[in-house]
Nucleic acid binder design. Sequence first.
DNA 1: CACATGATCGCCT
DNA 2: GGCGATCATGTGG
Length: 200
Amino acid sequence: MTSGEFPRAFFLRPTVEVAKDLIGAWIARRQGDAWYGGRIVETEAYLGAADRAAHSWAGRRTPRNEPMYMEGGHLYVFMVYGMHHCANVVTRDPEIAEAVLLRAAEGPPGTPAGLLSGPAKLCSHLGITSAYSGRDLLAGDDLRLLRGILAPPELAMTPRIGVDYAGEAKSWLLRFIDLNSPAISGPRRLNSAAKILISE
DNA sequence: CACATGATCGCCT
DNA sequence: GGCGATCATGTGG
């Protein structure tokens, strides 16, 4: 696995592929001269108009989710529960409103365990707010995604978290985790219903 | 560990 | 008006 920035084409691929391949990638945030961040260990795919759990379900298009309709590689950040933010990487071509939710990352050694374990905690501690919604990840200079430099992770897939309202889509296996990471969100969320190993 | 609850407000119907 | 792509805390087993 090589290191460095992802090219635009990476984000234009099928959303599930992007969600898988972002496991093991790094998210980096600049604060002055220093960079902070972590290794992404948990993502979820949101599949646009056909996906009842997605904000773009049934073609919904509002000021809030407008970034989902942008070209892959942009950021879609929204607020939930009036107090938390969630960050998504938009995928595919313009007008195809799909995205990958960044759910958890592992901080460098020495950082408190669980600091980035959860979509809202990740945003909070990396300072990602609604101000970043609609931004192009390939254009900014203070928030970047970088290819992983470690061995490819062992992946598992499970249903997504917190989408019980989504009918049939709630059981779709669109959550991807690094099996060996201690930083997965929630209380050892593996043992619930469906879990499948993926052979890389 | 599993589950339940409250906080809190922007966004959409 | 109602409802979350969450989290911290509290209870009980």
